[in-house]
Amino acid sequence: MLKAENLFVTFHPGTPIENPVLRGLSLTIPTGQFVSVIGSNGAGKSTFLNAIAGDIMLDRGTVSIDGEDVTHQPAHRRAARVARVFQDPMAGTCEALTIEENMALALSRGQPRDLRFALNDERRDLFREKLAILGLGLESRLTDRIGLLSGGQRQAVSLLMAALQPSRILLLDEHTAALDPKTAAFVLELTARIVQENHLTAMMVTHSMRQALDYGTRTVMLHRGQVVLDVQGEERDQMDVPDLLHMFERTRNETLDEDALLLG
C-alpha cells in the first residue's frame, strides 16, 4: 500500500520565481491497485512521483509504503521497494554503459552490491531472454552502448529494468510517450502484465485519456498540485474519453475563473 498525505513541495521558495508545485496532495493506493494519473503540463505529476521515490524531499507531508513511513528515506534506500521508469528516456538509463551493464545495475536494485562480477553468462542469458520479449531485436545487442538506442527502445529497456527485481511500487512517468503507436501498445500490455503478475501497486502518468481509462482500475487527475478527480469502479467503467476530457476542461476552466475572480 502506498499512502501520500498532505504533500507540499515548493521550488525556489522565497524567491521571485517561487513555484508551489504540490499543495496538500493526498492519495492512498491499496496494494495491487493500478492507478492512471492524468493532468495538464506542469500539474505536478512528475514531481509527485519524484516525491514518492525520494528524489525530491518534501516541505511537508508524509509518504508511507506498506505502513512504513519513508518520508525521510533517501531515494537509494526506497529503491528496494520502488521501481520506476522516468519520463525522459535519457534519465532512466546510463548512456555511457552498455545494455547489459545497465540491466546488471537494475538486477542489483535492492540487493547488496559487492565484489562479485556484475556480468556473467547466467545473467546475460537472463537479459537476452527478457529483451527477446520486447521483439525489438535488442537481445543480440547486449554489448552495445545504450546511448546508441532510440529513445523509444531505451524506454522499453527501462521498463524491463524496472521489473528485473521484485518491488512493491512501480512508478511510470509517461513511459510510452516516446514510443511509436505499435510499440507503445505493446509496452502498455507488457506493463499491465508485469503489474498483474507481480501484484504491484502502480501509478502510470499519461496524457492519453484513452490509456488512462483502458489501463488500471482507477484514474486520478492532478491539477495544480492537488487531486481534483478520483474515479474507480462503476463510475469509471461508464466513463468514456469525452467524459474525461470534459472533466479535464472543466477543472481547467474553473481554475481560470478563480484566477479571474482573484484578479478582478
Binding site: 521515490a53 528524489d55 531515494a75 537509494h76 548512456e95 536494485r109
Partner: peptide, 10 residues
C-alpha cells in the same frame, strides 16, 4: 554517469 538513475537503482 547518471547519479539520478543510479539512486533509482538503489
Amino acid at each position: 554517469a547518471n547519479p539520478r538513475m543510479a539512486r533509482a537503482q538503489g
